[in-house]
Design a protein around this nucleic acid. Structure first.
Lengths: 127, 127
DNA sequence: GTTGTTCTCAACCTTTTGGTTGACAACTGG
DNA sequence: CCAGTTGTCAACCAAAAGGTTGAGAACAAC
C-alpha cells in the first residue's frame, strides 16, 4: 500500500506523503504561514489551541514529506517552506486533468459523428 | 480537525477531503484508470489484490471528496471522474507556491541591497 | 552555575483508516 | 421462477493518526 522510499531527514518524498501531509488543515495553515516567511516552531504553534508538541509533530510530518526544512538557529529551529515539492502534486494532478479532458473531447467527437442510440458506456462492458 | 461541511452524495467537497482521498496510492490508481475512461466497480477492483468491498469503500471515499460520481446502469455502477475538482487543489497549491516565490524574490532583493552580516531570520524573533 | 526558554522524545489514549468476512439487496438471463 | 452476477451494508480487527502529559536535552542569559 506504500509507494516509494521513506526518508528520514527531509529529502524529496513520495506523492502519498505530500498529499497526506496537506490533508490536515492545521498543516495547511502552517504551510500558509510559511509561504509568508520562515518561522520558529513556537511562532508556528502560537495561533493554534493545541499543544506545542502536537505542532512539533505536524512539522515533522511536513518535513518528512519534503515540504519543509528545519534549521537549527541557537536554541530555536527555524522552519522553512520548500515550495518546489508542491510542483510534484501539480504535475500529477494536471496530467490527469488533461487526460480526462482529452477523453471527453474524443467522446464528444465520437457522439457527434454517429448519432446512434447506444446506452452503453466508455469502457468496454464485457459479457 | 475538520474544515467544512461533509457531503453525503458526491457534491463538491473540502480541500481536506480531496487531499486525503488522493493520499492513498490505491485511490490514485483508481483515478488514473478513470482518467482513461469510465468503469464499473468490478473493473476498477480487478487490478488490485484487495477485496471488492475494499475497493468499493475507496470509491466511496473518492465520491465523498467529489472526485468521482457513480451512475446506476443496470446492476452495475458506472464510476466517472469529475476532473474539475482537481482544480481546487491546483488553485491552493499554486497560490502558495507563488507566494513563496514572491517572498524569496523580495528576500533576494533585500540581501542584494544591504550587504550586512545579520544572522537573524525572516520572521521577527522576539527576545 | 543556575535559571528560564525552546523544542524533542517517550508513553499513553482515542478515533480514524484500510482491510477482512459474511449476509443480502438488486438486477440479469436463462 | 431460479440461479448467477454485481455491488453495498454490517460487524469486526489491526495499525496509523492526532492528541495529551511528563521528562529532559540544548542552548541563552543573567
Amino acid at each position: 500500500m506504500d509507494d516509494g522510499m521513506r526518508n528520514g531527514t527531509g529529502d524529496a518524498a513520495t506523492l502519498s506523503q505530500v498529499f497526506q501531509a496537506l490533508a490536515d488543515p492545521t498543516r495547511r495553515d502552517i504551510v500558509s504561514r510559511l509561504a509568508i516567511g520562515d518561522a520558529t516552531v513556537g511562532e508556528l504553534a502560537a495561533p493554534f489551541d493545541v499543544s506545542l508538541q502536537a505542532v512539533s509533530k505536524h512539522i515533522t510530518v511536513l518535513e518528512q514529506a519534503g515540504l519543509v526544512t528545519k534549521d537549527k538557529h541557537g536554541q530555536r529551529r527555524l522552519v522553512h517552506l520548500e515550495a518546489e515539492v508542491l510542483g510534484l502534486m501539480t504535475a500529477w494532478i494536471e496530467r490527469h486533468q488533461q487526460r480526462a479532458e482529452e477523453r471527453l473531447a474524443r467522446l464528444d467527437a465520437l457522439l457527434a459523428e454517429m448519432p446512434h442510440d447506444d446506452d452503453s458506456a466508455t469502457a468496454e462492458p464485457r459479457t
